[in-house]
Simulated scan of single mutants.
Amino acid sequence: MPTIGIVAGEASGDLLGSHLIAALKAKRSDIEFVGIAGPKMMAQGAKSLYPMERLAVRGYFEVLRHYWGLVRMRKELARRFIDNPPDLFIGIDAPDFNLGLEMMLRRRGVKTLHYVSPSIWAWRHGRIKKIKQAAGHMLCLFPFEKPIYDTANIPATYVGHPLGDMIPLKQDQDAARMALKITDPGLVIALLPGSRQSELDFMADLFVKTAQKIAADFPDAQFLVPLVTRETRSKFESAIYRNQAQDLAFKLLFGHAHMAMAAADGIIVASGTATLEAALLKRPMVIAYKISKWSWPIMKRMGYLPWVGLPNILAGKSVVPELLQDKATPQALAEALLPMISDKQRVAEIQREFEEIHHQLKQDAGEKAAEAVLEMIG
Rank of each mutant, 00 (worst) to 15 (best):
163 L>H: 09
117 S>N: 15
156 A>P: 06
132 K>Q: 09
141 L>A: 12
109 G>I: 00
112 T>D: 08
98 N>S: 13
128 I>V: 07
106 R>H: 01
167 I>W: 05
123 W>G: 01
126 G>C: 12
134 A>I: 09
109 G>S: 08
157 T>G: 13
142 F>K: 01
125 H>E: 15
144 F>L: 07
152 A>V: 02
156 A>H: 05
128 I>Y: 07
112 T>N: 09
158 Y>N: 08
102 E>M: 00
122 A>G: 11
116 V>E: 15
153 N>R: 14
130 K>P: 14
162 P>V: 04
163 L>E: 06
95 P>T: 02
140 C>R: 12
134 A>H: 11
146 K>T: 13
108 R>P: 01
165 D>W: 03
162 P>I: 02
105 L>E: 04
135 A>I: 01
144 F>I: 06
165 D>A: 01
104 M>L: 11
127 R>H: 15
122 A>W: 07
117 S>W: 11
134 A>S: 14
154 I>D: 00
102 E>R: 03
121 W>S: 06
134 A>D: 12
108 R>T: 05
151 T>R: 14
99 L>M: 08
106 R>A: 01
152 A>D: 06
162 P>K: 08
155 P>L: 05
117 S>R: 13
126 G>V: 13
108 R>N: 13
155 P>K: 10
140 C>Q: 14
166 M>L: 15
107 R>G: 03
150 D>N: 13
